[in-house]
Design a protein around this nucleic acid. Structure first.
Lengths: 111, 111
DNA sequence: GTGGTTTTCAACTATATGGTTCAATACAGC
DNA sequence: GCTGTATTGAACCATATAGTTGAAAACCAC
């Protein structure tokens, strides 16, 4: 436990239910019951998933009456993007080599 | 188990040791013992981490003599990037708002 | 204050994860 | 074939994760 924040964010994202919740929240605030509706799962389970997302900083909670609507905070995703950027050149290089190879196969007619 | 591939990749990345292994492999092929050297951990543990990375398609294994050098395959990271791209506009929008706010604070002198 | 709604907490279960140690496998060199 | 080196497998342990159910908390409406 108490892993570095990038690990916490990535492991929060490594679950399709949680990514689904984020996608829904990208469209705007929602309550827990609204968020739970599409899933064949108890509300308590969704509540737990939301807690994981909150610990990762990806979701924030407001509080009004008995409702505790959640909203997305995309900020931690930036950290993921920064990490990924280091590798982007690698897969792009790979793509370039494939691209060159394919053009080569097509008979050097790379006009 | 048998999660979707994006989940598999993200959960493979959600561990600092495994991200360290990838960083090392980004610099070129390496054997398991070379990879294990910086870590205060048994070779068997490193071997397990590598297996997780292989299942995610991030690392490939060749086989020559008793050595089984690994190399990085950045391809699955592209899938992460595609997923992230959906959210990029959100955090950029957020940044823009902050940027505008800061310029406002600095006395509208946004020359 | 009673009743209904929304959400979380607590206890529990099953399985996954990350590590260990020791044995086994696979190969090269002699 | 024996020895040394590199790597994995098997068994095991502790803890984390993802779900369940049922009760409790917080609030609104009446």
């Amino acid at each position: 436990m108490s892993a570095d924040s990038l690990s916490t964010v990535l492991s929060a994202l490594a679950d399709p239910t949680r990514r689904g919740l984020l996608a829904r929240l990208a469209a705007g605030e929602a309550t827990v019951s609204e968020l739970a509706k599409p899933y064949d799962m108890s509300m308590a389970a969704i509540s737990k998933h939301l807690k994981v997302l909150e610990k990762a900083g990806l979701v924030e909670q407001s509080h009004h009456a008995q409702y505790r609507p959640r909203k997305l905070n995309p900020e931690p995703l930036r950290e993921v993007d920064v990490w990924l950027a280091e590798y982007r050149k690698l897969w792009e290089a790979r793509f370039d080599r494939l691209d060159h190879y394919l053009r080569h196969l097509q008979g050097k007619s790379d006009a």
